[in-house]
Design a protein around this nucleic acid. Structure first.
Length: 332
RNA sequence: UGGGGCGUCGUCAAGCGGUAAGACACAGGAUUUUGAUUCCUGCAUUCGGAGGUUCGAAUCCUCCCGCCCCAG
């Protein structure tokens, strides 16, 4: 429980359904100030345990985050946090407290399949749907998961809170990277890199120098802002060349990709073996693109029906069939 | 120190006597459980400088300064 409306309403709904609840609020060590959850405890009349998961968070999420940037890729901390922290360490601790299920305020839904498997499906609220961030969960994790908000919209959630006089302690939506403030970002990553990043040239594909970068860890594929490189058209980051310490940029048309390799596959449905037509989300807030997943012994490739903008290594590609999440992989 | 060309926002660039377009960059905001994208807003009382002509100049004239090219 973060203290926000979502987890608050989720708990309330479970309570109404007759569940016996134990609240858990975990901290990462990066909170700017402690959240006082006593009013939530009073409102729901439950006990909320505070769990300090900073050591685990540091190791599983922050290290991963920094190492990914060190390799010139763009991490997906929320996906990793869900798999390793919320439905990993946190779930284990919850079990120790006697919990048989773990519920969160995610806008996603699960359904029991005929074969005993759990299907992960998009939340009803098309805009808030967070199934993307849960696509790296395993069947084991999904079996314990409850998503009370899966079939409601954000507006309905707010309405429930209002009608039941539930007052969240945290007004703000959780968004952005939860453990770093924007301006501190470059320094945060740089301070944790074994080899300090050095500035270098920003170049076009033909080698023309158009500006200077502040260290390659500051950029991600598809990024436009912050390049400080005026030109005849907006430039976007096309390639992060770690080997030559170059940031290759180009016009928007240079960012489209039709085929990409994916690795570290996680299947929520039974693993597929040949090729399959799927709708793939390249990043959160991506509408999803018609594509074909080709699974072969030497690797898996994803081919889009239409070229996609800024396919970014390190990001999670989530495969959908209609509303169901089939699985996910990491863009290489 | 002969000849020619040019100097307008951080960058590129309109304007050619009637009171400073636009693009890129940048800043702020909206959106977003990924520093992305996208969207909105802002951004030269001033045109290398100093004089002059004119009701009125970035636009015409003079001088100066600074670049560039060709001849040295």
């Amino acid at each position: 429980m973060s203290g926000g409306v979502d987890s608050l309403v989720a708990a309330h709904l479970l309570q109404r359904q007759g569940h016996d609840l134990v609240g858990i609020h975990f901290t990462t060590g990066f909170e700017s100030q402690a959240v006082d959850l006593s009013s939530i405890e009073d409102q729901l009349d439950i006990k909320i345990h505070q769990l300090d998961l900073s050591a685990e968070f540091e190791q599983r999420v922050v290290d991963y985050f920094v190492e990914t940037y060190a390799r010139g890729r763009t991490p997906n901390p929320c996906v990793v946090c869900n798999r390793t922290i919320k439905f990993g360490v946190l779930a284990q601790r919850a079990k120790a407290l006697g919990a048989v299920k773990i519920a969160t305020g995610h806008y996603a839904d699960t359904r029991a399949g005929s074969d005993g498997r759990i299907a992960l499906v998009k939340g009803t609220d098309g805009v808030k749907d967070q199934s993307y961030f849960l696509a790296m969960l395993t069947q084991e994790q999904l079996k314990q998961a409850l998503f009370p908000l899966g079939r409601m919209t954000k507006d309905q959630v707010r309405e429930i809170a209002r009608k039941n006089r539930l007052l969240p302690v945290e007004a703000k939506e959780s968004q952005d990277i939860c453990f770093i403030k924007g301006p501190e970002f470059p320094g945060f990553v740089a301070s944790r890199l074994s080899k300090p990043p050095s500035p270098g040239n920003i170049v076009l594909a033909d080698g023309t120098v158009v500006g200077r970068h502040r260290g390659l860890h500051c950029y991600t594929i598809g990024q436009r802002r912050g390049l400080n490189s005026p030109g005849p058209e907006p430039y976007y980051v096309k390639t992060i060349d770690m080997e030559n310490n170059l940031l290759v940029v180009g016009g928007k048309q240079a960012l489209y990709t039709t085929e990409v390799a994916v690795g570290d596959l996680n299947w929520i449905t039974p693993p597929l073996t040949s090729s399959l037509k799927v709708t793939t989300k390249i990043r959160y807030s991506h509408k999803g693109a018609a594509s074909t997943l080709n699974i072969e012994n030497d690797g898996t490739t994803l081919v889009f029906d239409a070229p996609q903008l800024a396919v970014t290594p390190g990001q999670t590609a989530v495969f959908y069939r209609d509303r169901e999440v089939l699985g996910a992989g990491i863009i290489q």
